[in-house]
Write a protein that binds this DNA or RNA. Structure first.
Length: 969
RNA sequence: GCUCAGAUGGUGGAACUGGUAGACACGCAGGACUUAAAAUCCUGUGCCCUUAACAGGCGUGCGGGUUCGAUUCCCGCUCUGAGUACCA
């Protein structure tokens, strides 16, 4: 039989499912290996060809590791809480559970037909009570913990209470809120239970905090930052405003240093590590207190302004202090004369949106408060300004302005005519721009004059500390993470409120089930959807927390649940965790670099501190697969204005590359182009991609999406004959020139390619190999099916190796020839080298070479072909299983990978490339036993070589054994 | 602006530690089989010049350098993509 991929693939997929071929045991003689794919959200659109790329790579790796004798855990599941199902529920009233189930079914069907070796007995879904029970349980552990800086780890809250009982707050070194109280043990004893709760909440690793959220009144919901674009909701384009709300937060900042240090211990792509480093944003510097010298100091809550600086050495160059306009001290510092100025400026700042404020970094603005501080190092008076380039949320919301060393400060000083003081002799051209150099010796700097940078910094840090006005300090940019959203489709937070204070439900009451509600919208009073749940009260009287957990909750620990997915007593058994330890290989997209991958590391470290897990880092090796992009075709729409009638604007379609669009004549009238950059997307399946041309007939069919694009203009009517500037091809047919553009594959771009179609046409094995053949795994690349035929032909050729002309299966038991063994062992070695370094594309080429060679050798040798089947099986498992069983064998998935024998690759001779002055001229076959002297003699004795030398004497001869001969003349 | 990644034929890409650049595949051209087409098979295919052929020149984004020898290492630049952005 010819290669019947459809039957073969169905047969073996059924076989694997029925025999639970890929079920991983939690105990084994074999070493463990854990291969994990990033948790997918089962979207309604199903899989497109980009999704399986990483899964195919991880599957090849898993299958390869099984052959290499590892006990492999390779699970799959669904991060099934999420916004799209909820959005659909809002629109249609259908419960998100139903949508989610249906989507998962589609996903599963699509995954199954690609032939993945997942252990489905360990499937998890974050939206199932049996799973989210443990997400809630982890939340409770966080609530019950505090971060002890002395032991540098999280501890149970009871150890904090013990400290409060024994010694009050003085001894406690914790990561906590800024407004914690100082008290003696005797005070603690007199606190009411409520007072104690309030105080403890300031230490807990998850706590309530007033935070600003993106509130969209039209949608009645809170949006994540990435759902907001330019101040409008991405979906629907409704205005979004900032609103303050009490929100749950996670004290991830406690782990900032460990999250940073841990990066050095894991094998991750450098860009991801770099992104996390930037996100954590560690700055080493100093905090300095400047004493306030103000008129109405009675209004002040403190008599100093604290700044954070990374250049404490420049403190003698300070010529002003700038506070963020939102800084608490601003109103108290403002003098009567400056009051109007300051209020005016604050009003102006408030008007500017967050985005304007960030985008407009060029304009210098600010206002003087009228007050001064005293520079502690030289007792000079320094004016206090406010300006919006200082951010309230970073450091202390105050900076010291050193114009000679910092460009922003320099611009500010220039603009407001403040002094620019040179502080290092190496600073150049500080009248033109700031010079941030650390070179040279200090000048104008009193007691650090003539010091160098390092010396000055450490001296000043000590000096400031001794004077009690500052100290060395490390600052992190990373803020605590908001943990909650005002949505329905998420894990309920296991908390109820009594007298306005949060308390945990009892552990045995978990899971706290997501209640049924009538509509998936906020209540009339603006409370989250859970507020609609009838009679949903703790012990029938206390309000539950109404927000649910954010998307990242369920995905921050899921790899542990896979180890022991059915466990009802623990999130995973001690034995399973001890055995599987951590993820050896994690494959996924780089879009999770600072979200999921950071939160997961945080929860992992926390669980380790409490002794529930054993590893400090969850993911030992990470690979980012590149994005498979889609190609969209654009047509340009150009607006023309009638020069004689300025109010009349016409939208016209035009091809690309129209020359000189400044003035053109249509229908006898002169028009001026007023906008030439509106573009619309043409669905790829309807356009003729090959020619990038959209013909008149095709355009007629497409008119609807283009129409929608235009419909912003009232009464726009398109006359296909006159409003479109057609090009004419050689055959006289009208067309528009389209511009192909590479973009993310998405439904809205009409460029999605569904793998089902390809599997139908070529089969899963071809799809698997073709996706790998496209190029390096990490690289992003546009999808095209140009080469898929080649891969399909390869599999047929491979199939034919085992068959005669009449498609009868035929192999022989002869002793393999030297050439056959060479071809075989080349591929045995190549594939193991390639897979170990995740270079899957190169092994596909090598398989083709091997099959070409064996075909040329007319090899029908059982021994050779059997090994070849095993080597190819991780890539094309179905065809290999079929051939393996035709060869009379069983259990291909756990067969040992063939042993590479270098002896088969050894050659007696090598065709040396002979170069003259580094240019390759010819090949000359020489015995590999020859050393430098014999080899050069043989080369020089060759007539052809002498011909190239043209009688000149060689100056030098380079001989690298087995590589090259280079003659220098 | 900053950080990171990248640039090789008509296309996707290969060349792993400095050692024959363009493997493998697509596409294209020619041929075989066929009434014809599809499928399949064979041959050729970096560019340029010349040629009947041999042979020659140029070639890994651009300009330099190190080296017997550079796609690979170093310096400078251009372009593309990704991330990030008043972070003190």
């Amino acid at each position: 039989m010819d290669y019947q991929f459809k039957e073969i693939e169905q047969k073996w997929q059924k076989f694997w499912a029925e025999n639970q071929t890929f079920k991983a045991d939690t105990s084994s003689e074999k070493p463990k290996y854990y291969v994990l794919d990033m948790f997918p959200y089962p979207s309604g659109a199903g899989l497109h060809v980009g999704h399986p790329l990483g899964y195919i790579a991880s599957d090849i790796f898993s299958r390869y590791k099984r052959l290499k004798g590892f006990n492999v855990l390779h699970p799959m599941g669904y991060d099934s809480f999420g916004l799209p199902a909820e959005q659909y529920a809002i629109q249609t009233g259908q419960h998100p559970v139903i949508t989610t189930e249906a989507n998962i079914a589609t996903y599963r069907r699509q995954l199954d037909q690609i032939g993945f070796s997942f252990d489905w007995s360990k499937e998890v879904r974050t939206s199932e009570p049996g799973y989210y029970k443990w997400t809630q349980w982890i939340f409770m552990q966080l609530f019950n913990s505090w971060y002890n800086l002395e032991t540098d780890k999280a501890e149970d809250i009871t150890t904090l209470i013990e400290k409060f009982n024994a010694a009050g707050s003085a001894d406690v070194k914790a990561v906590c809120d800024e407004d914690v109280r100082s008290f003696m043990p005797s005070d603690w004893a007199t606190f009411s239970p409520e007072e104690k709760q309030i105080e403890l909440l300031k230490y807990r690793l998850t706590y309530l905090k007033e935070s600003t959220v993106n509130w969209c009144p039209a949608l009645g919901t809170v949006l994540a930052n990435d759902e907001v674009k330019d101040g409008f909701s991405e979906r629907g384009g409704y205005p979004v405003e900032q609103k303050k709300m009490m929100q749950w937060s996670m004290r991830i900042s406690a782990y900032a240093e460990r999250l940073l240090q841990g990066l050095d211990t894991i094998d991750w792509p450098e860009p991801v590590k770099e992104m996390q480093r930037n996100w954590i944003g560690k700055s080493v510097g100093a905090s300095v207190r400047f004493k306030i010298n103000a008129q109405n100091s009675s209004l002040l809550t403190q008599d100093y302004i604290e700044v954070f600086t990374t250049r404490v050495d420049t403190i003698f160059g300070v010529s002003f202090i700038v506070l963020a306009p939102e800084h608490d001290l601003v109103s108290a510092l403002t003098t009567d004369e400056q009051k109007a100025d300051i209020e005016n400026y604050i009003a102006q700042t408030k008007k500017k949106s967050e985005l304007d404020r960030m985008a407009d970094t060029k304009t210098v603005s600010g206002a003087f408060t009228g007050s001064y501080v005293i520079n502690p190092v030289n007792n000079e008076l320094v004016p206090i300004w406010i300006a919006d380039y200082v951010l309230a949320g970073y450091g202390t919301g105050a900076v010291m302005g050193v114009p000679s060393g910092d460009q922003r400060d320099w611009l500010f000083a220039k603009h407001f005519n403040l002094p620019i003081i040179q502080i290092l002799d190496a600073q150049k051209d500080i009248e033109v721009e700031a010079d941030p150099t650390k070179e040279g010796k200090y000048i104008n700097s009193d007691f650090i004059n003539n010091f160098g940078y390092k010396e000055a910094t450490s001296y000043l840090n000590h000096w400031l500390e001794r004077e009690g006005v500052g100290k060395a300090k490390v600052n992190y940019r990373m803020r605590d993470a908001i943990f909650g959203r005002q949505r329905y489709w998420g894990e309920p937070i296991p908390v109820y409120f009594k007298d306005g204070l949060p308390y945990l439900v009892k552990e045995e009451e978990l899971p706290l089930m997501l209640p049924e509600i009538d509509k998936y919208l906020p209540t009339e009073s603006g409370e989250p959807p859970l507020g609609r749940a009838e009679g949903w009260k703790y012990e029938d009287q206390y309000e539950y927390e109404l927000s649910t957990m954010p998307g990242w909750a369920g995905s921050s620990w899921y790899w542990y649940r896979y180890m022991d997915a059915q466990n009802e007593c623990d999130f995973a058994s001690k034995e399973a965790i001890a055995y599987w330890k951590d993820v050896d290989l994690y494959i996924g997209g780089s879009e999770h670099a600072t979200g999921h991958l950071l939160y997961s590391r945080f929860w992992n470290k926390f669980l380790k501190d409490l002794g529930y897990v054993n590893e400090e880092e969850p993911f030992k090796k990470l690979i980012n697969q590149g994005m498979i992009q889609g190609v969209s075709l654009f047509v340009k729409i150009i607006a023309y204005q009638d020069i004689n009638n300025e109010s009349d604007v016409f939208w016209k379609y035009a091809s690309f590359d129209e020359k000189d669009l400044s003035d053109i004549i249509i229908n006898g009238n002169t028009f001026r182009v007023i906008s030439a950059n509106r573009e619309t997307i043409i669905p790829i399946d309807k356009a003729d991609v090959k020619t990038d041309r959209l013909y008149y007939e095709g355009f007629r069919q497409l008119i609807a999406p283009v129409w929608n694009f235009l419909s912003g203009k009232d009464g726009a009517q398109i006359d296909l004959e006159t409003d479109v500037i057609w090009r004419i091809d050689n055959a006289g047919k009208r067309y528009l020139q389209l511009r192909p553009e590479v973009q993310k594959m998405s439904k809205s771009k009409f460029n999605v390619v569904n793998p089902d179609v390809l599997i139908e046409q070529y089969g899963a094995d071809t799809l698997r190999m073709y996706e790998m053949f496209l190029g390096p795994l990490e690289q992003s690349k546009p999808w095209n099916t140009n080469g898929i035929e080649g891969v399909f032909k390869f599999l047929r050729k491979f199939w034919r190796l085992f068959h005669n002309e009449e498609w009868v299966f035929i192999v022989n038991d002869a002793i393999p020839t030297k050439a056959e063994l060479k071809a075989l062992h080349k591929i045995i070695k190549k594939v193991q080298d390639d897979v170990e370094r995740f270079s899957f594309n190169t092994s596909v080429s090598s398989f083709m070479i091997a099959v070409n060679e064996l075909t040329d050798l007319k090899c029908k040798n059982r021994q050779v072909l059997e090994d070849l089947v095993v080597v190819l099986s991780p890539y094309a498992p179905h065809i290999c299983e079929e051939l393996w069983s035709l060869l009379g064998n069983k259990d291909l998935s756990h067969t040992p990978y063939p042993t590479f024998n270098p002896a088969h690759l050894e050659e007696a001779e090598f065709a040396y490339p002979i170069s003259i002055n580094g240019k390759m001229k010819m090949n000359l076959s020489l015995s590999l036993t020859l050393e430098q002297d014999e080899a050069t003699a043989a080369v020089l004795a060759n007539e052809q070589v002498q011909g190239y030398l043209e009688g000149k004497a060689p100056k030098k001869i380079i001989f690298v054994k087995g590589k090259i001969v280079n003659i220098v003349v």
